[in-house]
Structures are given as structure tokens and as C-alpha cells.
Design a protein around this nucleic acid. Sequence first.
DNA 1: AGGTTAGTGACAGTCACTGACAATTGACAA
DNA 2: TTGTCAATTGTCAGTGACTGTCACTAACCT
Lengths: 213, 213
Amino acid sequence: MNTVTRPGLRERKKQRTRDALLRAALELFTTQGYEHTTVDEITEAVDVSQRTFFRYFAGKEDAAFAVQDLAHTRFAVAVRERPLDETPLEALRNAVLKDWDTIAEAVEQVVPIDLYLRMCRLTESTPALLAAHLRRSDEAGEEVARIIAEREGLDVDTDPRPRVAVAVFAGVIRVTERRWGLSEDLGATETRALTVRYLDAMGPVLAEKWRTG
Amino acid sequence: MNTVTRPGLRERKKQRTRDALLRAALELFTTQGYEHTTVDEITEAVDVSQRTFFRYFAGKEDAAFAVQDLAHTRFAVAVRERPLDETPLEALRNAVLKDWDTIAEAVEQVVPIDLYLRMCRLTESTPALLAAHLRRSDEAGEEVARIIAEREGLDVDTDPRPRVAVAVFAGVIRVTERRWGLSEDLGATETRALTVRYLDAMGPVLAEKWRTG
DNA sequence: AGGTTAGTGACAGTCACTGACAATTGACAA
DNA sequence: TTGTCAATTGTCAGTGACTGTCACTAACCT
């Protein structure tokens, strides 16, 4: 008798199964490695049939990126919410930074953050995962480019600037991603600072001569 | 009796097999689609065992990108050959443009250019291939970043600028790639011009306000 | 010519993923 | 409460990518 109709038992059960599968998958991936984890191992850990796994996730890869997708979606929303007086790159910059502070709790709703972070690192060192990650980022970038174009009242298929701006921005993000993913000792706070530094350094990099001689 | 020891019969036979497999693979991929082409179909077309295919290529994917890898390698060389008085981004820009004019014949040595171009378009519309392509590009970018760092006498692990510059540059290239891959009517010449335009527009994009209002 | 070695084919096995159908279980009305 | 409907799941069979192994053949070397 909830005023807000609570999802029925069926719905709740489904959610539990999905969560359990997701958590088991990430746990196994991060401890044994992605390639060395079979779907059977995941389903055995949750005690469902293999077929069920594929009903919840399009494939192994899809499970690996369920959380990452959440982050991408949130970022797109954050960009859409930026005030219109910011330039495109300002909007992108401020969107990441604002999102950064609240992303942790959003992730925690689904899986322990620690698990997510370990998964991110694994992505960087697993070719198959890195490939999938880059493609998903590319996709997310496309969406953001459309948002930027809309903000600026431009046609994304005529004017290249939205896509160029997003591509440039994504490139910088990728650098910090890599840096963070491969270094053992680099906390979230330091990485955030690094991101700011790189983004702010971007302008000069393009014009300046680097050599002091 | 060659002064330059010509590769033996064994070596030549191997090369022929590899070429035949590669050509058959690309031909089938581009006509039937990547996913709908089985390795068995490829090997049947060349009349070798399936096992042989996997001795020449690490997988289906590897065959699909054999030519693309050639292009990446050439680009890296082109960057290395740029005069030292060019700024990093100038060097990158001029390397693509210079390479552009000679890449065609280099490709033709291995497979018909037309086949290569069709393969590129297919990559853009096949998620699995796009993912693989982006990862390989990322890898190539890492190599180029090291070359740039060396040119400038910097340590790539300390100074982020080489990677940032390459990431930014790669982002722009990606935009033209996409544009070319998805439009039916866009020749190589027009695409080259587009690349120049985007690259040259990059600086302004980062600083300027876009809205005229 | 005869021994060595690289390249190949044949075969068996693993694993991701899919389609089809039957069994189960929550939802909902009589 | 009970029976019906529909959603979820399990089972089974099959495809296709990829790997290890081993015997065989053909090029290479002396």
C-alpha cells in the first residue's frame, strides 16, 4: 500500500539477480583477469543458468562496462545542465569537474567503488576491454557533441566544431585516464587535479613552442 | 644466383598464402559483412585449413587491420622524419599530409586500394571493428607521443604535453575519419582538404566564442 | 641422397553466444 | 483461493572463434 507504487516482487527479484551477476562478474574479472573468467564461473557464483546471464547482459563485455555506462550517461546530463554562457570547452571542463564530486555515491548504489576502480585499471591493461572502452567513449562523445551543437544552435552534420571540440576534450581525458590507470599510487583527488591541469594546459600546448633553447 | 639473396621458395610460398588469405578476407568482409563472414569461408576460398589462417593472423580482427597497421607504421615514420624546427603539431600535421600522397601506392602493393577503402568504411559501421580500430589508433598514438617527446627532448612519463598534443591531434583525425567513413560521396582529395581545414581550425575552436549573438 | 626443420592438415577441445522449447513462478481476475 | 496469463528461467542443441597436439610433407642444408 505505497503511495509510490513500489516495484512488484518480480521486478525486485530481477534487480537482485542483475546486481548479483554484475558484482560477481566484476569481482571475478578483477581477481582472475577478464579473459580467464568464464561466463560459467560467473553464473555458478550466483547460481543461475548461463542463459540467464545473457538475458541480462549482451555479453561478457557488457557486464564489464555496466558501471562505466552509468558514468557516461551522467556526464552527458552534466553537460546539458551547464549554463549557456559558458563556452563549449568551459562547459565540458566544468561538467567533468562537477560530476566528479558526486559520481562516487552514484556508483556505490550499484557496486562498491573500490571494485569499480579496480575494474577501470583492469580495462587499461586488457586489450579487449580497452578496445570496448574506447568505442563506448567514442559513442558517448558523439552524444555530447550533439548536446554541444544544440547548445550553440548549430547543425552537428554541417559544422565540424562541436565534434572537434569534443574530440579534443576526449583526447585530454584519455591521457589522464591512461595515466591514472597505469600508475599504482595515484588517488582520485590527485587525478582530479591532474585533469584540471591538463585541460588548462591544453590551450598553450597548441600554440607555444616547447623548447626553451 | 642473386647478389641480393632472394627469399627462398619456402618464404615466397608463405608470402603468397598470406596475401591470398588477406585478400580473400577483405573481399568477403566487404561484400558479406564482417560478422557474417566465417574463418572457414575465408580458408575455403584460399583452399587451406582453418588452422593455417590462425598461423598467419592472430584472429579475424587481425586480418581486417593488416593494411591499417601498415598506414600507422608509415605515419610514425613520417613524423620521425619531420624537420626539428617544426612545432609538434606542425610536425604531426605535415606528416599526415605528406604521407597522404604516397600511401596509396604503398597499400596497392598488398591489396587493391579500392578494397582497402571499402574496408575502412566497413570499420566505421561495424562496432567490433570500430572498437578494434580505436584501440589500435590509441596504440599508434602512444608510439607517436614517444617520438614527439624524443624530438623535443622530453620525458613522456613526466611531461604530459606530448601525449596531450597527440591526443588532440588524433581527435581531429578521428572526426574526419568518421565523416569520410559515413558519407557516400566524399573522395580522397576532398577528405584531405577537410583534414587540413579541421586541423587549421583547431586553434580557434579552443579559444573563440562560437555564438555570434 | 639423407637428415633436419618449417609449414601444414586433421582432430579434438574450450568458450562465447544464440535459438527453441519446456518448466516455473509472480501477477491478476473470477 | 484458485485458475489463467505472461514473464522469467532452465535445458538442450548448435554455431563459430580460437588453441593445443601430433603426424605428415616439402623445402632446406650438408
